[in-house]
């Protein structure tokens, strides 16, 4: 067992974990933050996307120990003071979700896209979200939601 200390959604957490514990299972099983989903186990679907020091990463492809000393934001940490993040609100209002399973990862990836480039074009949004699959499949409204959130931030 190894000790890890991770700042998750602003709060410092310390746990003894097995070195082979994946970050996604640390979040889901140890911390009960089940909004981060497991879709493919191999880094292709993006359902497990979280922000690691602000960068969108696939938490199924990282060990918990790799997050030691770093900061993780999950979907549960996006709302502030009971108020939804603009991206969350936009996904709801623009109907950028159906079954909702890809939604948390999609939202966090979208946050990072706008963080890097608040004026991302439609094509840049589509390419930026290429690593987040939606099978239902709501890509059209997802892009609209990201655009709406960008508009609001300006």
């Amino acid at each position: 067992m190894t000790s890890v200390t991770v700042t998750v959604n602003g709060a410092s957490k310390t746990h003894q974990v097995e070195p082979r514990l994946l970050l996604v299972h640390y979040l889901r099983e140890t911390l009960s933050l089940t909004g981060t989903h497991v879709g493919c186990d191999t880094g292709q679907c993006g359902a497990c996307t979280v922000l690691l020091d602000g960068a969108a990463v696939k938490s199924c492809s990282l060990f918990a120990v790799q997050a030691d000393g770093r900061s993780v934001t999950t979907i549960e940490g996006l709302a502030k003071d009971g108020k939804m993040h603009a991206m969350q609100d936009a996904f709801w209002q623009e109907h950028g979700l159906q079954c909702g399973f890809c939604t948390p990862g999609m939202i966090l990836s979208a946050c990072e896209i706008l963080e890097r480039n608040p004026r991302a074009s439609e094509a840049e949004i589509r390419t930026g979200l290429e690593g987040n699959l939606c099978r239902c499949t709501g890509y059209h409204n997802i892009v609209k939601a990201v655009q709406a959130a960008a508009q609001k931030a300006r």
């Binding site: 889901r28 009960s32 933050l33 089940t34 909004g35 981060t36 989903h37 497991v38 999950t74 979907i75 549960e76 996006l78 709302a79 939804m84 969350q88 609100d89 996904f91 709801w92 209002q93 109907h95 979700l97 909702g100 399973f101 939604t103 948390p104 939202i107």
Partner: peptide, 21 residues
């Protein structure tokens, strides 16, 4: 009408089968 399950789905609160503890 916007989806009534929208807030649960955008905040990670919607609980899928594997997440029942």
């Amino acid at each position: 009408l916007p989806r009534v399950d929208g807030p649960a789905k955008v905040t990670g609160a919607a609980r899928y089968a594997y997440e029942w503890q």
